[in-house]
Design a protein around this nucleic acid. Structure first.
Lengths: 150, 150
DNA sequence: TTGTATGCAAATTATTTGCATGGGA
DNA sequence: TCCCATGCAAATAATTTGCATACAA
């Protein structure tokens, strides 16, 4: 998604296409969630949106995130600990979830799509999304732990 | 894990190996969680164990599940909706998560381990677990939906 | 105008924690 | 014996819901 104009347009189209009304709150939440390269939590989005819409409620943020998932603009993923994170990257990809610093690093591997397609076909499963998380310690935290042990 | 004797032995060995005491409650919870082929929730385990230990508490179930994860006998995974599920299958495998009936079907694919190993190596990530979920509609729910629409 | 979205607060649900007591090693 | 595990209840934290009002279509 290259610029804000295109982004607005896609959001409006997706919402209206499923019969959802477009409100300033919904647009702001969607824009922020989709434009970000990070894996945000509902609260992070909420605190950001509150700067421009001080009366916005967390319930509206959650509701909007649900719509974004339904119209296929966003993926939600639950974390081993702590709250759900939202990811605008809809392509199948690997996420490296660090247990120590809670960071998520996206990674691409050409075989991910292949594995998912084959398994879904074999199991006659109609896939609407996928999660490939590798859980452990990121490089930075690993090095930090090593240093502290010395 | 072929029989109850072996299972008991493995559990005791794993607990003591990390300095955890073995109590009847812990053994019962572990046996039930590990022997099951299903992906149970903490509550499911709790209701089962209460039949033999009516005073057992949910907190103990959670604590034991944490230990089982730590000693590497169990994987925990969070669900898109509802509570966490626990899986005694520690081999990398695909899970087909049905959004309608909440069932989880395990599936094996030879490339899963390869993808995970390669990505972890490339990203210098030290992996301790993985989740490969395909989210959507299982075959049964898909057919049911089709019938209802006619 | 008409129904849907909003904001607020309260409700719900999963999980964790504090603490006194009991029991494994 | 001594510390760790237990059960209970209360706390926490994330997310959802009910409802009156506001606003997009």
């Amino acid at each position: 998604m290259s610029n804000i104009q295109d982004l607005n347009f896609s959001i409006i189209k997706a919402f209206r296409g499923k019969g959802y009304k477009v409100t300033p709150q919904r647009l702001a939440i969607s824009r922020f969630a989709l434009f970000s390269r990070d894996h945000l939590t509902a609260k992070m989005i909420y605190s950001q949106i509150k700067k421009t819409y001080p009366t916005v409620s967390l319930a509206t943020v959650y509701a909007t995130l649900h719509i974004l998932k339904e119209v296929g603009l966003l993926q939600g993923r639950c974390m081993p600990t702590s709250e759900a994170r939202f990811d605008p990257d809809m392509q199948p990809h690997v996420q490296l979830v660090c247990l120590q610093c809670d960071s998520i690093i996206d990674w691409r591997h050409p075989l991910v799509s292949k594995v998912i397609a084959e398994v879904a076909a074999d199991a006659k499963f109609s896939a609407s999304g996928q999660v490939l998380d590798i859980i452990g310690l990121c490089n930075r935290c690993k090095e930090k732990t090593n240093l502290e042990e010395k």
